[in-house]
Amino acid sequence: MRRYDQMSSLVWLAFAIYICIESGRLSFGSFHNPGPGFLPLLVGIFLGIFSIIAFLQAFLSKETEEIVQSWYPKKRWKKLIWVLVAMFAYAFCLEILGFLVSTFLLLVFLLRAGMEPQRWLVAIGGSAIASISSYAVFELWLKTQLPKGFLGF
């Protein structure tokens, strides 16, 4: 955990510096009449202080005895990336292909390439049922406006 804590606190420190620089461009106002940059700058400074303390804590602490598990088990790493890519692709395609098509494709992909590959019949059948029934519930019943896409549904 110790090395991870050092790493993460440095990331937060970088973020704090970013906040401070960016809020410096806004008007700080005065203590009498605080401006829009007042709170962000304050928060940035505190975040910076806390992350330095966290870094020092991690730096000075002894390595804990708990067995440090790798936070990226390589076997699963790939699947995780695929799921994320699929979701980003879904966000990208949603308004082009429309709700029904993109949802069907997403579900087939997740069922096949997700945790455990399901049989094609299950994947296609399940995805069809799930996308049509969610369309029925959200679009037809709850009147959520789902994107139509160039096919018109």
Partner: peptide
């Protein structure tokens, strides 16, 4: 869970989209 998780993701996606389209 391998069958459940795509549905949970789908609900999250629809839910977020429908707030502001």
């Amino acid at each position: 869970y391998p069958i459940l998780f795509p549905l949970i993701l789908l609900f999250c996606l629809i839910g977020v989209y429908s707030v502001n389209n």
